[in-house]
Amino acid sequence: MHFHLNKALKEITGQTTSQLINDRILQEAKVLLKNTNWTIAEIAFSFGFEEPNHFSGFFKSRAKITATKYRQLNND
């Protein structure tokens, strides 16, 4: 079942299940950074990251900007 889902998603979207999930996490993280006063750590924990620095690395590698800088640029 798992393999079939992965194969179907890859054929339809061109992305793996993990890529789709990570894209969605990034999208939701951006919403929280723009629309809440939650700390970076609170946002990290809300997505299940055990350490805020893991979330920070995840965010920066995908958004090409730090979460803090993203928040500053989108809240001015």
Rank of each mutant, 00 (worst) to 15 (best):
N74E: 14
R24I: 02
E28V: 13
T36L: 09
H4G: 02
E50S: 14
E50Q: 14
L32V: 03
S61E: 15
A63S: 11
H54R: 12
S56N: 08
K30R: 12
V31R: 09
N35E: 15
Q27G: 03
F47L: 12
V31I: 12
A44C: 12
T36N: 14
I25P: 06
L73D: 09
M1Q: 08
R71V: 05
N22Y: 07
S61H: 04
Q19M: 09
F55D: 07
Q72S: 00
T68A: 15
L5K: 10
A41S: 15
T17V: 12
Q15C: 15
K69H: 05
R62T: 06
L9A: 04
E28N: 14
F3E: 13
A29Q: 01
H4I: 14
F55A: 05
S61I: 06
T17D: 04
T66C: 07
I25T: 11
R24C: 05
G48R: 12
I12E: 14
G48D: 11
G14W: 03
K7N: 06
Q72Y: 06
A44R: 07
E11A: 06
E51W: 00
I65K: 10
L20Y: 01
H4Q: 10
L33N: 05
Q27L: 12
F49G: 08
T16I: 04
W38F: 08
T39I: 06
S18Y: 01
L5I: 09
L20C: 10
H4Y: 13
F47N: 05
N53R: 04
I25Y: 09
H4L: 14
N75L: 06
N35I: 01
N53E: 11
G48P: 13
N35R: 05
F58P: 07
F55Q: 06
H54N: 12
N75K: 10
I12P: 03
G48Y: 13
N53S: 06
F49N: 11
N74M: 11
N37L: 08
N53H: 08
W38L: 15
T16M: 00
L9E: 10
N74H: 15
N53I: 07
S46E: 15
Y70L: 03
K7I: 02
S46G: 03
H4R: 13
